[in-house]
Computed example of a mutant assay.
Amino acid sequence: MINPYQQAGYRVRVDWGPQGADAVGAGATIVAVVDVLSFTTALTVAADLGIEVYPYRWRDASASEYARRHDALLAVGRSEVDARHPVSLSPATIRTAAGVRRLVLPSPNGSTIAQRLADTGATVVGVSLRNAAAAAAWTAARLADDPDTVVAVVAGGERWRADDSLRPAVEDLWGAGAFVDALDRHGFGPLSPEAEAAAAAYQRVAGRFPQVLQDCASGRELTGYGYPQDVAIAAEVGVSRMVPVLEGVSFRACAVG
């Protein structure tokens, strides 16, 4: 029996988290990873600055050695930022850091999914609300002439603290939907029902950012912890023309004219 979770027969497919990445990413030509708060937003801010980003599953004992091996700065936890460790997963710290050329950016969701997809043969790109339109234009231009190509979109989601299970996060649904909606406007399809639902969710709130991002659960969480600027940066819809593309083990920026 054909895997029903693969969304076969559709050129644009959407699912959630690492397992969803395995399902819809199988056989995909391009996989867009979406983690709006905050991995892919941080990734697009880094791309705007020309910073090469190395995704890593999480900041454990091996992360420091990994950063040393690649002559890269290791991002710390948000609460650990100081003069010696100026960069975290917070996009605001990346924007204000000086002299950073290579960055190891751990994250349990978007970064983990990107690493998981690295060996599948698909081209992996980072998508946020900031660059969804540019990423869709970049994708459509590369795949328009081949009707057999497939684009998989993976919404990262968050993790419940109690048991580490997946929490579907509406900001990632909006980010995935912004990308899918832009692909559809380029005539790239057909969209799976899951992809259509994501696009519809984005269309419902388009024009109401940053307010809806501030009001969703993840936005309230970050604001409550003292990082409203990260939510504001994530809500910069369409400001970036850079598409972070995973080449080997790192993301490098491709500019869209």
Rank of each mutant, 00 (worst) to 15 (best):
G156S: 13
G157E: 03
G157A: 03
G157M: 01
E158W: 04
R159S: 02
W160T: 07
A162N: 14
D163H: 12
D163T: 10
D164Y: 08
D164T: 01
D164N: 13
S165K: 13
L166W: 07
R167G: 04
R167D: 11
P168V: 13
A169V: 12
V170N: 03
D172W: 05
L173E: 10
G175A: 09
A176M: 10
G177H: 08
V180C: 02
D181K: 01
R185P: 00
F188E: 05
G189P: 05
G189W: 01
P190K: 07
L191P: 01
L191V: 01
E194T: 09
E194R: 10
E194M: 08
E194I: 01
E194P: 01
A195M: 02
E196S: 14
E196C: 11
A197T: 11
A197V: 07
A198Y: 03
A198E: 02
A200M: 04
A201P: 06
A201Q: 02
R204Q: 13
V205M: 05
A206E: 11
G207Y: 04
R208S: 13
F209M: 11
P210E: 05
P210Y: 04
P210G: 06
Q214I: 08
D215Y: 02
C216F: 08
C216W: 10
A217G: 15
A217Y: 15
S218R: 15
G219D: 07
E221N: 15
T223D: 10
G224Q: 08
Y225T: 12
Q229S: 14
A232N: 05
I233T: 04
A234P: 13
E236H: 11
